[in-house]
């Protein structure tokens, strides 16, 4: 068989055994938005950076503001003020790690949400309710950055211990 024919046969065989699928739409959206990090990094002067301030830190199983009837949550709850918006974080301890669920309370949706410590980075995206989630996060000191098109909100220190 001629080399060209063998090559064509090889191509056909490859096509017939190709069972790959497109990545889910939300992942493709994430990948496209990842480029925005580069855009904002290239133009730091155009990016407004807001440092969030801790306003409330409730230990697990404690009711907020002296509530009597409601049971306390099993999660540690933190509420941060970030100018015209706020960040609600719930941290739940598991056997050897933590799950963090949060919500950005504001007008616009975030492009990405990053949870970072030295050498470790977790990424999430806003869901429809501007919520985000990180699971199985090891103990440590982290910063949380919520990036929007022209601004970012930073929580400098979240201690998981």
């Amino acid at each position: 068989m001629r080399n060209e024919d063998r090559k064509l046969e090889h191509v056909i065989k490859r096509m017939q055994t190709d069972n790959s699928v497109d990545a889910p739409a939300d992942l493709i959206k994430f990948a496209r938005n990842a480029f925005l990090q580069r855009s904002t990094a290239k133009a730091p002067s155009m990016l407004e950076r807001i440092v969030a301030v801790l306003k409330l830190d409730l230990a697990p199983n404690r009711a907020a503001f002296g509530e009597r009837s409601a049971g306390g949550s099993a999660a540690r709850q933190m509420l941060f003020d970030a100018g015209s918006s706020a960040i609600d974080l719930r941290v739940t301890a598991n056997a050897d790690a933590y799950d963090i669920r949060g919500q950005h309370i504001g007008d616009i949706s975030a492009e990405t949400v990053r949870l970072e410590s030295a050498g470790t980075k977790f990424l999430s995206q806003n869901d429809e309710l501007k919520g985000f989630e990180f699971t199985s996060v090891p103990a440590g000191n982290y910063s949380l950055t919520i990036t929007f098109a022209t601004s970012e909100i930073v929580i400098d220190e979240i201690v998981l211990d």
Binding site: V21, D22, A23, A31
Partner: peptide
Amino acid sequence: QRLIYAIPRRAGLTDEQAADVFQEVFVTL
């Protein structure tokens, strides 16, 4: 996207793990 998603899936990772790999590759890129 299809090639990057195919690699962890063909290695037997779960959908969730494959999604993590996919995201990390693009962030690194």
